[in-house]
Write a protein that binds this DNA or RNA. Structure first.
Lengths: 230, 230
DNA sequence: GACTGATTAAATCAAGTGATTGATTTTTTC
DNA sequence: GAAAAAATCAATCACTTGATTTAATCAGTC
């Protein structure tokens, strides 16, 4: 009776049903393992084992491995995109034809992402997102791309309007810094922590706060004014 | 006669000898393929094929795949570390007990890396370094770590001295931004370029320049002063 | 109580992985 | 020019990968 394992109808199924059906179990297990070992590093077999389902189930529900990844992204990104869009739209409306505030735009884009770190599975997905955004496999990056593209363009456009002091080229490179900073913070495998000793432990609001301060200052820094046409 | 291929003693060997011996050929081919497909994404077979050597050669010269990666890092990082150390030491000596300039410290650390993008194979290695620094496999990250650790600690210590206005926690998180920005810029798979259209084409000094401006402003931004003990 | 469509199970495929072997060739050294 | 060392070769090992196939099971409905 105390045995877990096959014939999962009474015991295992009940505790599993709390989490969800097989499909949900797969999604959650995959999310955890992708976060831990990366997309290519986590095999379907390991995922199936963790989800306690048969090897064929994944192809039944998601067709292929990439479909599984896509499903994870859709599950997590959709609500975040909604929040981002709302906040960006609010800023847009508020600023009208004027130049919006840099830090407001940044916060509208970043906060919804970092905040979700605390949600159930949020930390795992944050890491997946970060890892996949620099994955060497174009197909993987495409998944990230498809998920974020629309809102990212909105964000970029608004941020551009908030930075009239920069040329396009300057703006371009500084955006690298934004994405890089976000990406690195979401990845976090403890390298910086090591270099500094264990003084930087309190992952929480401070991370978001410092990220925003840093990026705002970086974007607000005056440009050469002599680089390109503007 | 015009055939390339096996029995590589006359033709192929001569043109290969210009590049170097088999060992060097392997290193260069591996560097290119690691940069393109990542460490785990590039198989030894594909590397061997590109280097036109036998499958066993790699184990003969480098023992295992990780040994090959290590060799690449040693080949590229050693001279860069030397330059970084010299420049950091120069700043240290110059500033004495006072607080060094933030942008000088940053430049001493970053310029030697970015500059090498233009050198032979530099672009490839830059990408390898960036990818491996966030690789999910701890063994891969360890290679990066071992290569950069000593100098990174030196850099961190000096930068810390240049930022007395920050608490440890603030400094910690802002360092994330530095590494992230560098990492993302060195990775570059064209995501930002797409979002902005093709206006940001001129990869060159502007990248370094904007990176430095951005990071300097970010580090110099005042801290709360109310976060931790300082 | 059989039928139907959805789900799960077990077994297996073809391809690719890093690594190793033992023999052979090439180069060096005396 | 023989002995020793360095380098190269073809063949293969044991294993993992994503994907597929075929058969069994289950619910719900008429």
């Amino acid at each position: 009776m105390a045995q877990t394992g096959h014939r999962a109808s009474a015991d295992a199924a009940s505790s599993a049903a709390e989490v969800g059906e097989a499909k949900t179990r797969i999604l959650l297990a995959a999310e955890r393992l992708f976060a831990e070992h990366g997309y290519s590093g986590a095999s379907l077999r390991s995922i199936m084992a963790a989800a306690e389902v048969n090897t064929a189930s994944i192809h039944y529900y998601f067709r292929h491995k990439e479909g599984l990844l896509r499903a994870i992204f859709e599950m997590r990104v959709a609500p975040m995109n909604e929040e981002r869009q709302e906040r960006l739209a609010a800023i847009e409306q508020q600023s009208g034809d004027g130049t919006p505030e840099v830090d407001a735009v940044l916060r509208a884009f970043i906060e919804p992402a970092i905040r979700r770190t605390r949600a159930q599975g949020g930390q795992a997905f944050n890491r997946i997102s970060a890892l996949c955004s620099v994955d060497p496999d174009p197909a993987v990056r495409q998944v990230v791309f498809d998920s974020y593209d629309t809102v990212s363009r909105h964000f970029t456009a608004l941020l551009r309007k908030a930075c009239p002091h920069l040329t396009d080229e300057e703006f371009y490179w500084r955006q690298h810094c934004i994405y890089g900073s976000m990406m690195y913070m979401r990845t976090d495998n403890g390298r910086v922590a090591y270099l500094l000793g264990d003084r930087g432990a309190g992952h929480s609001d401070t991370a978001l706060q410092q990220l925003l301060v840093f990026l705002t200052a970086g974007m607000k820094a005056p440009g050469d004014g002599a680089v390109a046409g503007a």
